[in-house]
Design a protein around this nucleic acid. Structure first.
Lengths: 229, 229
DNA sequence: TGTAGTAACTGACAATTATCATGTTTTAAA
DNA sequence: TTTAAAACATGATAATTGTCAGTTACTACA
């Protein structure tokens, strides 16, 4: 897998599209590709990152440990996203851990390339800035949801979100399969509470399950539930 | 109050310090100063902002309405901070409302100046980026606290935060006086629950009150409480 | 292919938090 | 200075959510 960034479609979806041909060449020359197996960590909260990760394939969770020892999932990354930029830009330790939810393919880009380009190419900075602005807005939304909604509402919202962003297979099951524990850590609830709620949703016909797999049956009703009706 | 940005100390604390003399002059020529009274809004969720606000004095709350109609305070701004940049950069409606908690003095800088400078001065972009990276990290922390901590812990944390960031008067009362409602909206709880908790903290000698004013008595114990001991 | 370990699930109960109702105090305006 | 409105406060109760203690089901691997 030594493909050149110049030919990589993924980059169209992130800030790397603002790079010139020359810059892109430099990235391609210094990047390394990695495969990460399901369950493995890309990086861990508190580490110093010496580069960023560009996700070619697979999904990861960005999480943080609370002082009570529970993990909170802050964000799921999409294909094409860049991880670790916050830490590289702020020259700071990561505040989050990244763990592969399924098998992943990522490219690692050393931080020197990133910071150099930030210093010289304002379009790149602006792209990164836009992306971060988007993340910040999403984070605000999460804060409001976490503080003002019940666990039931948050779970309903999570299902709608997953369907919209990670689509489903031919039988109507979410392509992204999360453990009950992961769901609990997204929604911020005890695993047992969450399992009960999944059972309840299933009983009401809002979702269907098949082993770990979950399918969204009544998207509109889930959305209404999430909005408090 | 037609002071020149060139002489304004405030700018040392935000991304405007990356501006050249010329750029600063342009800002000074196009900026307007405003006084905002306690309780008044600087902007409201959903508005299109045509500039950013640089806070010279006073404190404001950035908040967002949940679908249940309750307000959630996402962040308090400090003197020197710039508000509205996320919206201007993303060319997006504001996702937050900004309301003055006490009387404020702010400078309004038209967005054209900001975007022009972002396009031409990479140091400025980088400064803005760093600031946004910081905000994003803080937002992650808030998410974790909101999801994993009890109301009691969150309130304890809020008190410690307020003492650290907004200091206190000669009698040991927090300089920033918030209504019980505001506290409830920071902590994400019903006002009644919050009032009860304040009474409890007071009874235990962790804080003292005098009308609306609140003083932190046992900072370490509050911090421990916040961390779950 | 058995078996250990993990994940999924359920019940009973306790703790936390919200809601409603009501009273008191403070604030601001006539 | 009176008076209405808002903010603060408390009690009773209900709803939500967490915890503990188990059982069952799946998965991996020796």
């Amino acid at each position: 897998m030594e493909s050149r960034c110049e030919n990589c479609i993924i980059r169209q979806f992130n800030s790397l599209r603002a790079l010139s041909k020359d810059e892109l060449k430099k990235v391609a020359d210094s990047k390394t590709s990695k495969k990460i197996k399901k369950g493995e960590a890309l990086f861990i909260e508190g580490q110093k990152l010496d580069g960023v990760f560009c996700v070619r394939d697979g999904v990861s969770k960005l999480s943080k440990l609370s002082s009570n020892g529970k993990e909170q999932i802050v964000k799921l990354t999409n294909k094409g996203e860049i991880m670790g930029q916050r830490s590289v830009i702020a020259e700071d330790f990561t505040n989050l851990s990244a763990t592969a939810i399924n098998d992943m393919e990522v490219c690692f880009i050393p931080k020197e390339i990133i910071t150099n380009t930030l210093n010289t190419n304002p379009y790149f900075s602006l792209e990164v800035l836009r992306h971060m602005a988007h993340d910040l807005k999403e984070a605000d939304d999460v804060i409001v949801n976490m503080s003002q909604k019940t666990v039931k509402q948050r779970l309903a919202e999570a299902f709608v979100y997953l369907k919209k962003n990670y689509s489903e297979d031919e039988n109507g099951f979410l392509l992204l399969t999360l453990s009950r524990d992961d769901y609990a850590n997204i929604v911020g609830a005890a695993t047992e509470s969450l399992i009960r709620m999944i059972s309840e949703f299933k009983k009401k016909g809002l979702i269907k399950t098949e082993g770990k797999k979950i399918g969204i049956v009544e998207e509109e009703m889930l959305q209404e539930l999430a909005d408090g009706f």
